[in-house]
Design a protein around this nucleic acid. Structure first.
Lengths: 195, 195
DNA sequence: GTCTATAAGTGGATAGAC
DNA sequence: GTCTATCCACTTATAGAC
């Protein structure tokens, strides 16, 4: 049960965030949220219009938080390669999966544009930021002149999201780490033949 | 509603496979399965002990089918690079996601070793097959001597699984295609500096 | 084998007391 | 604002008729 010296609405949102991460949207009931938040039915329907409304608030916050974390690493110090490496190697609770990515497998989230929007915006923003870094690396000669920033950015993000899938299937973070290691070996700067 | 000239048990399994793909395990109710299969409660509990038992049969079949499809492409003709390319470019209904991969986000599947096992076995088999192909490519000089087959295999599989995530978030297959394109550009054979 | 009937519990939401 | 009571449909399963 979520506890802390905060408002009921706040506790409801935080409880929902936890449950959405653990069980997804379909797997999360108002009852479970209320139990964890230590609140009654009335509180929830006073602050929110219903489950979708509360979930929207929770998803928005989770998406913003993930975006801030990712951009914090990507805007850090180092060469373009080093920043992508830092992003790929940053500490993650791999077996929990990505709190944003996992929601894309939720039919009720994907069916609702309002619920899907925060996922799209966050993943897209990270992708754009990665693409810019790759282009930077190209200009500096760290990556070959023939690489496509947008494409590589999608590959990097997909490797992370897919790494979670492989890890959860096997019950071990090893597959995630292997995928990241493989990608880094492919990205690692070496002499580029001038097209 | 699923129809066809087959046994009731068969229709139940096929209906479950469809629903598990569309809505996951938590989002699939016996009632929905029975409606689609055109069967009554009694039929289901006659052939299976309950929802988990029926889901297990469905998941096993889906996992085997995916494995056969993937290995069919990977064991096809062509150089190692071409076979990996064929795997990455094979026709997919991208926005539906991977029928196996999506189940890894289902808490009740991951919590049950019997339900999780088929996912693990299938993804692991594809990974092993990919790793072997990369090693083959190394021997033939198509890939550099420093690449790690196991790691690259995980990267390839993760890019596919993560591509589904990005595509579903954006509501378009474009991100999947971009990720694959980026990966292929990184894998494409070129002159390798001898370590 | 397949059907309907039944049942205890949950899902999601409303009403009204305090 | 928060609580409890109430509601109806759904979930999962069992019982027993045909």
């Amino acid at each position: 049960m979520y506890s802390g010296c905060v408002s009921t609405a706040e506790r409801l949102i935080e409880s929902t965030r936890e449950l959405l991460w653990e069980r997804g949207y379909v797997g999360t009931s108002p009852k479970a949220i209320l139990e964890r938040a230590g609140a009654g039915q009335g509180s929830m329907y006073h602050h929110f219009t219903g489950k979708p409304d509360l979930a929207l608030a929770a998803i928005r916050r989770t998406a913003e938080e993930l975006r801030a974390t990712a951009e914090g690493v990507l805007d850090g110090p180092g060469t373009p390669y080093e920043r992508i490496e830092a992003y790929l190697l940053r500490e993650r609770d791999v077996l929990r999966g990505c709190p944003v990515g996992r929601l894309t497998m939720d039919p009720d989230v994907i069916a609702d544009d309002a619920l899907r929007a925060p996922l799209d915006e966050t993943l897209d923003a990270i992708r754009e930021r990665l693409a810019g870094i790759v282009e930077e690396g190209k200009e500096q000669g760290q990556f070959g002149p023939d690489v496509d920033g947008e494409a590589i950015a999608a590959t990097v993000l997909a490797t992370v999201q897919g790494g979670y899938v492989l890890a959860r299937a096997s019950g071990s973070p090893a597959a995630f780490d292997a995928g990241v290691r493989g990608l880094l070996s492919l990205l690692r700067p070496h002499d580029h033949p001038t097209v």
